[in-house]
Amino acid sequence: MKTIEIDDDIYQYIASKTEQIGESASDILRRLLIEAQTNTTGTNNVQLNEISNNPATLEHAQADTTPATTNTNDTQSNTNKAKKKKANSNVFDFLNKEDLNMQKNVVSRFLFILSLLNRAHKDSFNVVLDIKGRNRLYFAETEEELNSSGSSTNPKQIPNSPFWVLTNSNTTRKKMILTEVATHLGYSEEQAEKIREML
């Protein structure tokens, strides 16, 4: 196995294409290359199987095929599918186990998971503002709002989002918060369990 260096934005793009938990960057890249090959050439299934089993044959397979003609209706269909997929995206579309494992403590994992949930549900993530404790807020749009809701809340901004979350609660409470967030965003009980256990 060879090690290569890639820019952060390229790695983030690869990570965003994760289709299942634990899928490695190498597996994702191989799948993307095969999909690109399939979309732009007349590669048949035999060649695809050969490429899947031996990535070194990708270049040879590409040289032996001729470009397929592009149909406007196919392009529109692909665009509609992409829009539909985006509308139906969930946190598992963006999760990369390697990135999760890089978060070295509970607070950083908590913020990372919330960041992924925000990324997957940008248009509806503000429902987290409805999630509250008996005497304090869990989420707010400003640090001051959380600070004024109780003592020693230790607010942190959720990365790449306008929202803040309190972080001084224990791990059990953080798991309960993640479960509530998942439920508010429409995840099933089983999916909410998986999200909670990422912590």
Results as ranks from 00 to 15, higher is better:
75 T>K: 10
121 H>F: 04
199 L>D: 12
64 D>G: 11
145 E>P: 07
67 P>F: 05
145 E>I: 02
40 T>A: 11
40 T>M: 13
198 M>G: 15
121 H>Q: 14
138 Y>S: 12
69 T>D: 05
37 Q>P: 07
45 N>F: 03
54 N>Q: 13
129 L>R: 03
191 Q>T: 04
176 M>P: 05
81 K>H: 07
101 N>R: 07
55 P>N: 08
160 N>E: 15
2 K>V: 15
146 L>T: 01
186 G>R: 02
39 N>E: 13
4 I>G: 09
88 N>W: 00
159 P>V: 04
97 K>N: 12
140 A>I: 01
147 N>K: 06
21 I>V: 14
129 L>Q: 13
129 L>P: 09
158 I>Q: 04
13 Y>P: 05
15 A>Q: 09
168 N>V: 00
184 H>F: 04
81 K>V: 12
120 A>V: 00
132 K>E: 12
28 I>A: 06
147 N>P: 12
171 T>N: 14
159 P>D: 10
145 E>M: 04
113 I>W: 05
29 L>Y: 07
108 S>A: 14
110 F>H: 05
41 T>P: 06
44 N>E: 13
63 A>W: 01
17 K>Y: 04
62 Q>N: 12
41 T>A: 07
70 T>Y: 08
169 S>E: 04
137 L>G: 06
142 T>G: 04
149 S>G: 06
69 T>N: 01
179 T>W: 02
40 T>N: 12
106 V>W: 00
83 K>I: 14
199 L>S: 13
161 S>M: 01
27 D>Q: 09
93 D>C: 12
134 R>Y: 02
151 S>P: 06
15 A>G: 07
34 I>L: 06
93 D>K: 07
23 E>R: 03
196 R>L: 12
147 N>D: 05
164 W>H: 05
189 E>I: 11
185 L>N: 11
164 W>Q: 09
57 T>K: 14
75 T>R: 03
176 M>L: 14
129 L>T: 13
26 S>R: 01
11 Y>R: 15
175 K>S: 14
7 D>W: 01
35 E>N: 14
6 I>N: 09
38 T>S: 08
80 N>R: 01
15 A>L: 03
188 S>R: 01
68 A>Y: 00
141 E>V: 10
117 L>R: 12
180 E>P: 14
17 K>C: 13
191 Q>Y: 02
26 S>N: 08
12 Q>H: 11
170 N>I: 03
47 Q>R: 06
120 A>Q: 02
8 D>P: 11
159 P>Q: 01
23 E>S: 06
185 L>P: 15
7 D>A: 07
135 N>L: 08
128 V>Y: 01
50 E>I: 10
47 Q>V: 00
22 G>R: 01
14 I>T: 11
19 E>P: 08
86 K>Q: 15
179 T>C: 06
105 N>C: 13
136 R>M: 08
16 S>H: 09
111 L>E: 10
72 T>W: 07
127 V>R: 02
124 S>A: 04
53 N>K: 13
88 N>M: 10
69 T>A: 11
12 Q>L: 06
147 N>F: 01
59 E>L: 07
51 I>S: 09
51 I>P: 10
154 N>C: 13
85 K>C: 03
